[in-house]
Design a protein around this nucleic acid. Structure first.
Length: 487
RNA sequence: GGCUCGUUGGUCAAGCGGUCAAGACGCUGCCCUCUCACGGCAGAAUCAGCGGUUCGAUUCCGCUACGAGCUGCCA
């Protein structure tokens, strides 16, 4: 059997949509599972939609996500060029289109916009336009004359309007349509560029693509592609159409929702690995039901026969959970390195950031979450003394005031050199015991006094340690003053 | 409007004629605990509807409903 070859063929129109990313990923996984070749082809046949810099985004995204292509514009293995506008320059599309014309499978069309507009009709609020094969009846001489005059033209596929066409998709099975549904789509545009519909067939064949992996939106035009393959006498590739990814409202993921592209997600603080992992599970699941998988594990486990047919909702909440799992599994140093910019954003004082980084590691899902966890280290926020009331800790503002006042001298006398978590914890627990108090009755007021927050990423004694003796005492004194004046 | 595809808890999903219908996220409760989180345990929640076929349908067929995609000189 020939080596399996797939391609990812994006259009350079902007950021990498997560639907495209997933298509690329599936193509990559299908290929690499079988040790095949993964080809990158740039489909820039639409001059209007071309966006400067978009090709770089494609390269960068592929690189970062680890979807490394074996062939592409930068790695020609003999099937190049891999950019359609470059291929177009050599005239291959026109050349192949002419072959079709000779076989009677395509024809020149000189209809202008005005005539085409007369063909428009509105059905169910939608404007539809089915070409009437007007130019098919042109004689060879008329065509030659028009061409000689330099009349603008397109080349259309000549589809029959009787009979049926059937094609096979690995996911959706056999699909049959009436040929009367197949309109004479344009193969070559009047600017000389091929349409996607034509270029993808020609290129996939020339590049010996064995498995065509693409979005479900191409399912309904596939019969027309099949007719093209057959007209050329080419072997039809294996089709794998991927289900759609939708937003919470079950409609196509759009820019409006703010997380429609890979870059959006990265900007929001997600890890590439988590995004790739998550997206892989949108429309597929492994037999062993494993959820957290590296790219290599995905390759090993991937079986496109287990892909689902129905669209999947992009669940932002689950992505966040998964990102959190990756964060928890990350080694401390790497986490610290990545968290550092976020830590420095809120903390300017000379605290042990590595320690704070570790505190936060199991409590966040994405890096921007860090801020709300640690802002109190910088300064105590405004808070209500009601916060000192906690039933389970058997404390309220009154008790807290008493405890803090008694504790202040004890902490003052405590050796600054042993101002660390373990020693302080021992000190406070002993204090609680000698005063016949619950541990919480002592620790809760301190934590509140130090942080002004209902919850913190660590306990009271750890905060003492990080803040240091001077700052800690100052905060406790401030808390005492606050309690005295407000209660 | 036409054509095509789809429909298992709120979400991702196993399932492929006989199951008490997996698992995960989220949610709720409990445990752990110097708060919160992590971790552990438990729980609520699903086969769109109606007809067939069958001894037996979530699984097969049909219809209906709903959703999506296509219907571009966009991909």
């Amino acid at each position: 059997m020939d080596k399996l070859r797939t391609r990812f063929a994006p259009s350079p129109t902007g950021r990498m949509h997560v639907g495209n990313l997933r298509t690329a990923l599936y193509a990559y996984l299908i290929t690499k599972h079988e040790n095949g070749d993964f080809i990158l082809r740039i489909e820039d046949t639409d001059q209007e939609r071309y966006v400067e810099g978009a090709v770089d985004i494609i390269y960068r995204t592929m690189e970062k996500t680890g979807l490394i292509h074996d062939e592409g514009p930068d790695k020609d293995k003999g099937y190049g060029p891999y950019v359609q506008s470059d291929r177009q320059k050599s005239g291959i599309y026109l050349e192949y289109a002419k072959k079709l014309i000779e076989k009677g499978e395509a024809y020149y069309c000189f209809c202008d916009k005005e005539r085409l507009a007369t063909l428009n009709r509105v059905e169910g609020g939608k404007e539809i336009n089915v070409y009437d094969k007007h130019c098919l009846s042109l004689s060879k001489e008329e065509v030659e004359a028009n061409l000689a005059k330099g009349m603008p033209y397109v080349i259309r596929q000549n589809n029959p309007n009787t009979g049926t066409t059937t094609f096979h998709d690995e996911i959706y099975g056999d699909i049959t349509v009436d040929n009367s549904e197949l309109d004479d789509m344009i193969l070559i545009k009047s600017d000389g560029f091929p349409t996607y519909n034509f270029a993808n067939v020609v290129d996939d064949h020339l590049m010996k693509i064995t498995h065509v992996v693409r979005g479900n939106e191409y399912l309904s035009s596939s019969p027309k592609y099949n007719r093209l393959y057959e007209a050329f006498g080419w072997e039809v590739p294996v089709y794998v159409h991927c289900p759609l990814i939708t937003d919470e409202n079950h409609t196509k993921l759009s820019k409006r929702c703010g997380h429609s592209s890979y870059e959006d997600l990265i900007d929001q603080g997600f890890l590439t690995e988590a995004v790739v992992n998550f997206v892989a599970l949108l429309g597929w699941s492994p037999e062993n039901n494993q959820e957290i998988m590296s790219l290599d594990e995905l390759i090993a486990n991937f079986d496109y026969r287990h892909m689902s047919k129905s669209p999947a909702v992009f669940d932002y909440t689950k992505l966040k959970w998964m990102n959190g799992e990756y964060l928890k599994a990350m080694d401390e140093d790497k986490f610290y390195e990545m968290a550092l910019p976020y830590l420095k954003e809120v903390i300017t004082k000379d605290y042990d950031l590595k320690k704070i980084s570790n505190m936060v590691k199991t409590r966040i899902e994405i890096f921007p979450d860090i801020k709300d966890h640690i802002d109190f280290f910088e300064s105590v926020p405004e808070y209500s003394i009601e916060m000192y009331t906690h039933k389970k800790m058997k404390t309220d503002a009154q008790i807290s005031l008493t405890v803090l006042k008694e504790l202040l001298p004890v902490l003052k006398d405590f050796d600054a050199a042993s101002y660390n978590n373990d020693a302080l914890y021992q000190l406070l627990v002993d204090f609680a015991q000698t005063h016949e108090l619950k541990n919480g009755t002592v620790l809760w007021p301190i934590r509140t006094a130090l942080s002004g927050k209902q919850m913190t990423p660590c306990g009271a004694t750890e905060i003492l340690e990080v803040l240091g003796k001077d700052e800690s005492l100052a905060r406790i004194e401030a808390a005492i003053a606050k309690l005295e004046s407000e209660s």
